[in-house]
Computed example of a mutant assay.
Amino acid sequence: MAGQKGTVLRIRPRGRPAVLSAEAIVEKAVGMLDAHPTAELSMAAIARELGVSAPALYRYFPDWTALLNAMSAEVFRDFPEIPEDLSWGDQLLFWQKQVVSLYHRHRGVMMLMGWDGQLAGPWLRVQMPVLLVLKYMGFREQALVETSAWFLAGTLGLIRTYLPADMEDVASSNQLDLDNGIGYLTEEQRQMLDEQRPWITSGNTERILETGFRALVEGVIQEQRRIGAAD
């Protein structure tokens, strides 16, 4: 028709538009894990949240492990580098605090550090700067392995113990209910516990973590001195 020359006719394709992608699956899975870190997560549950069938997810991730690896890579992707202009002790403390920050952003991060008895590759990459700092401090071979082991385990142990109390779906009463253990204590121990009860729930989490982290860092420095003296 005259006047319509050059008009492009756009035809909307039939069927449901494709909204599923590997990125969308990972984003949904990480979001679900962060929202309910103690709940069981599965391909079927993720598929339900996405409004698709479970087999649709397997077109992007052949198995559960593949999806976990992708989730781990996403969560640990932007973990910051340790500043080189800090002292060795402050470098270690910086790393510890970044793990806390990551824990606050991703409440399910502990699950993505490893599974089936193996460390997740992205989490291993995050740990390696700590080993490098210890190497620069003079730790070698068995001393490097053992020192990094208790430093990393101590850091994560403090985080696991004291941060969950601030989370809505983790009942702090489960951690603070001491009555079931009273029967195992001596009279003197019971009396001491009763005296401390008013203070148990008033502990400052940030102060506890800061003190614990600094104690671990100081332990590394003391171990460095001991090894240096031995050499």
Rank of each mutant, 00 (worst) to 15 (best):
L92M: 05
G157S: 03
F94K: 06
G108F: 07
E27Q: 11
W199Q: 13
E146C: 04
L124Y: 04
F94V: 03
M192V: 05
N174C: 07
G15S: 08
D34R: 05
L102M: 12
R105W: 06
L132R: 13
F151E: 00
E187M: 05
L50N: 02
E49A: 04
H36W: 14
R12M: 08
M113E: 13
E210Q: 14
E81L: 12
L178K: 09
L92V: 02
P198V: 02
V52F: 01
A215H: 15
E210T: 15
M192G: 03
T147A: 11
L57R: 02
A229S: 14
E218K: 13
E168D: 12
G31P: 02
V26Q: 11
F139C: 01
M43E: 11
R207Q: 15
D78E: 13
S148N: 05
F61A: 00
E84D: 10
L9W: 03
Q189Y: 06
R12E: 15
R10H: 09
R59S: 04
S172A: 13
A171E: 08
T155P: 03
G89N: 13
Q142Y: 01
Q91I: 12
T147W: 10
Q196S: 14
M110G: 05
Q118E: 07
F213H: 15
P17A: 03
G121L: 12
D78A: 12
R207I: 15
S21D: 04
G15D: 02
G3H: 02
T161W: 07
R12Q: 10
I25M: 02
P13W: 08
D179I: 05
L193K: 04
Q96G: 01
P129S: 06
L119T: 05
F213K: 12
V217F: 12
L93I: 08
L119E: 04
R10S: 05
S42V: 02
